[in-house]
Amino acid sequence: MSTKHTIAVLVNDQPGVLQRVSGLFGRRGFNIESITVGQSEEAGLSRMVIVTTGDETTLEQVEKQLYKLIDVIKVINLSSKPMVARELALIKVKAEPSARPEIMGVVETFRASVVDIGTANMMVQVVGDTVKIDAMIELLKPYGIQELSRTGVTAMIRGNA
């Protein structure tokens, strides 16, 4: 059964390491839904969080193939444990002054924030799990979304898990 998996990959912060990882996914036919990369708690190491879909066998192959890369230090299947997963989206939505109060209502409900206001649009920032952001986008669609940018998921296992 094909399901969504979130995996964290601790890698050497070396030139080309993103290419090695994404290239591996590409040539082995593994799907990448999102990928985020940034510093980790240790100097010289970066943490990638990759959301991928596939069955258990595919996931096992993904993990094993990742471990074959010399620059990969550790692979953790986050979604096998209780985790916190977040992404951030910036949404530029059409907002004539008359529509603004209604949009503000949606923003407040989602505990999102307005980070910029133009003459005829607003930029909304929303943080949350993927489902929340999907829902927010759905609600803003009727007003006219002019531009949308999502960071992709970053995630961690909960402290006591």
């Binding site: 080309g16 290419q19 090695r20 290239g23 591996l24 010399i70």
Partner: peptide, 10 residues
Amino acid sequence: TGITMPITKH
């Protein structure tokens, strides 16, 4: 290095 990434061990 880019061309041979899929066909080298490292």
